[in-house]
């Protein structure tokens, strides 16, 4: 198992390397760069030269990549071209904000998804299932920019209960941020919960139809004990990977929602830095998002491995 984890970490590092290469090459071959964007119409002659020199864009691309990679390994992502400050300082509060948003969505969304999924499965084709499943399909199919806008319209503009957009400096404290995130969290949790609840539902239904559940019933195991001992552990195992992907998606910045609510998280930073041609920031974001995906998936796989006795023995035997 340790060998397996080691192998996966190695593969993850290779993935990160490839991701960095692709983003570097991608931003390099696009027409225009930080200086042309910054200088706009004056982007010619001496001014442009000076700008290139100042930002270090005059040295060859591969050299820039190598020195950048060398610094990243040491934990330094370099300098933001547009913001004129170290990227680590740009990223810090953004990551914190995204984490707050994601954790809130996770804390609300996952338990709700599990409960709703289990309820719909156990009362399959009965009233609770029909109501919840219909709602779930609705919130899944309505695109998030519509549902988010509707939320703003109803809660913020008509009812005036909560602020519609987040107008706070990037580095507010947690408690100042809290009232601002309620609406974004609801918008995200709606979609996330719907997806996951559908997943959990079908997984539970599948296990309920299995021979071993029929056997447990015929053994005289009381209903709820059967559900908790025989059904759920087996039904929720495949859900771990879906949960992991959802968490990675959340941490990676929920771009659309963040833009709609003007939320200062990673997702909005992605949009901003791309439109500013801020190559170092784009690269830093690509690396960070990729490592979030890689590590969360690794954790999910290890968890599945540890919780599933079948896979565990297979691994040991190998």
């Amino acid at each position: 198992m340790f060998f397996l984890i080691f192998k996966r970490i190695l593969l993850g590092l290779i993935t990160l390397f490839i991701v960095s290469l692709i983003t570097f090459v991608g931003t390099e071959i696009l027409p225009g760069d930080a200086c042309t964007t910054y200088l706009e119409r004056e982007a010619y002659g001496a001014a442009l030269e000076a700008c290139y020199k100042r930002l270090g864009l005059d040295i060859p691309a591969y050299e820039r990549y190598l020195s950048w990679a060398y610094n990243v390994i040491q934990g330094d992502f370099g300098y933001s071209l547009s913001g004129q400050m170290p990227i680590n300082e740009v990223l810090g509060p953004r990551i914190k904000n995204s984490m707050v948003l994601a954790s809130a969505a996770i804390i609300i969304g996952i338990p709700m998804a599990l409960i709703l999924g289990i309820i719909t499965a156990l009362w399959r084709d009965k009233l609770p299932d029909i109501i919840i499943s219909t709602l779930a399909i609705f919130s899944m199919t309505i695109p998030e920019f519509i549902s988010a806008t509707l939320l703003i319209l109803i809660v913020a503009i008509w009812l005036e209960w909560l602020p519609g957009i987040v107008i706070v400096p990037t580095d507010v404290t947690f408690f100042e941020l809290l009232p601002n995130i309620i609406l974004p969290v609801i918008a995200i949790a709606m979609i996330m919960t719907a997806h996951m609840a559908r997943m959990v539902r079908s997984s539970v239904i599948q296990v309920m139809a299995s021979d071993y559940v029929q056997m447990a019933i015929l053994k005289g195991v009381p209903y709820w004990k059967m559900v908790f001992k025989h059904v759920l552990p087996n039904a929720l195992l495949p859900a771990i990977n879906v949960v992991a992907l959802t968490i990675a998606w959340l941490l990676g910045g929920v771009v659309v929602t963040e833009v709609v609510f003007n939320y200062p998280g990673l997702g909005r930073l992605v949009i901003e830095s791309i439109s500013n041609r801020d190559l170092p920031v784009v690269q830093a974001l690509a690396i960070i998002l990729a490592s979030i995906y890689v590590s969360i998936n690794l954790i999910a796989d290890v968890m599945t491995l540890m919780l599933n006795p079948r896979l565990k023995t297979l691994q040991i035997r190998k």
């Binding site: 071993y212 056997m215 025989h230 195992l237 919780l307 599933n308």
Partner: peptide, 8 residues
């Protein structure tokens, strides 16, 4: 094989 609960 299928009638014994796999996680117990």
């Amino acid at each position: 094989g299928q009638s014994l609960t796999p996680n117990l």
